[in-house]
Design a protein around this nucleic acid. Structure first.
Length: 357
DNA sequence: AAGCCGGGGTG
DNA sequence: CACCCAGGCTT
């Protein structure tokens, strides 16, 4: 009959003081710039993945001004492997806006933050709470899972109707005190206790009024996304090898792997052959059968067939420069490569020209 | 409302 | 292999 003696937020904060994460790189020091960079990197990306990227990024771009001044290729180079490369482009666009419009300082106002490219409702709230000390509820993957269970919210959280309900609950649950700690606390609870698989309810500070636990449905909430079969997209690529390295070109800024450097591609093998022979009349297609790169994205499966061509010394014909480089594994590069392409090129025998081994 | 945009961890 | 993750933008 009587409810829990302490409010949701009070129980969570007490738990956080003892069991929360207090040693994340962006917590020391917790500047607005570092919080912003971490929040963007953490979009759809796990903490353990982000940490090394965050350290290197902050070292190279220590403040808003440094990021605003940087070359786009170098920003993407520091982002390569993280995925969702529009985040990097938006980050730099936002940095330049912050310099021009806000004197190089992130604004502590929700509308101003959310108007910046790459910052949506939840990221704006995370910055407000953690960098400005304001009461602003977030709704990320962890919070969605915690609240969907605690309030037993039906439906897939990605559905707008369900999401709207979760935003309501997030606002109701958030206390007035210690906004930064509460924000970190509810994320920590989701990441370490209220996990997707095998949650540790025996270590949870808010089980007293957890609706999913009472109903014995912790394992069923939140409900999964409706599944759909992934289409397969077949593409053909040209691997042109010269003594100078492998030819890579910059991809368009929109579309998959936007702004990264990769092998030239086409829809069919003859288009690749025509493109190569048009550029390098001395190119010879290698005898071995084409290699294959398989890669799965969130919305389709890529089946990339790779035709190999060899160029004699001095036949490159195209200097490095606008949108093209000759890539050699191990050599320092200043651009970003898609993770599966870099793996492929670094495999023995793919990117070396065979004349030295 | 649905699609687009990466890569890796995990069962 | 399928699902998910410190989401946001575009259509």
């Amino acid at each position: 009959m009587a409810g829990p003696a302490l409010l949701f937020g009070e129980r969570l904060l007490a738990w956080f003081d003892n069991y929360g994460r207090h040693d994340l790189p962006w917590q020391h020091p917790r500047s607005a710039y570092r919080v912003w960079i971490s929040e963007i990197m953490l979009q759809q990306t796990r903490v353990d993945t982000v940490i090394p990227y965050f350290r290197a990024f902050i070292e190279r771009f220590p403040d808003v001004s440094a990021l605003a001044r940087a070359e786009a290729d170098e920003v993407l180079h520091h982002w390569a492997g993280l995925g969702y490369y529009a985040r990097a482009r938006n980050l730099q666009r936002a940095a330049r806006i912050i310099v021009e419009r806000h004197g190089g300082v992130l604004p502590c106002e929700h509308a101003a933050l959310e108007s910046l490219p790459g910052i949506g409702r939840s990221t704006a709230a995370a910055i407000l709470a953690q960098a400005c000390g304001q009461r602003a509820p977030i709704l990320d993957g962890n919070v969605r899972r915690v609240l969907a269970r605690h309030a037993a919210v039906e439906g897939w959280p990605g559905a707008p109707r369900v999401q709207a309900r979760l935003w309501e609950i997030a606002d109701l649950r958030m206390p007035d005190l210690r906004p930064a700690d509460y924000t970190q606390a509810i994320m920590d609870l989701g990441a370490t206790v209220c996990t997707r698989h095998a949650p540790a309810c025996d270590r949870c500070p808010v089980t007293d009024d957890c609706a999913a636990l009472v109903q014995g449905r912790v394992a069923d909430l939140p409900m999964p996304r409706p599944s759909k079969a992934l289409p397969v997209r077949t593409r053909w690529a040209g691997l042109v090898r010269s003594p100078d390295g492998t030819y890579l070109e910059r991809r368009p800024s929109s579309g998959i792997w936007g702004g990264l450097y990769s092998l030239p591609e086409a829809d069919d093998p003859d288009a690749v052959r025509a493109w190569v022979s048009c550029r390098w009349s001395q190119a010879r297609e290698a005898i071995p059968s084409p290699a294959r790169i398989g890669h799965s994205f969130s919305h389709y499966r890529l089946d990339l067939h790779v035709l190999r061509f060899d160029l004699p010394a001095g036949a490159c014909g195209i200097m490095e420069g606008e949108g093209a480089i000759w890539y050699k594994p191990g050599l320092a590069i200043r651009v970003g490569l898609p993770a599966p392409i870099e793996r492929f090129l670094n495999d023995r025998g793919n990117s070396d020209d065979g004349t030295n081994g």
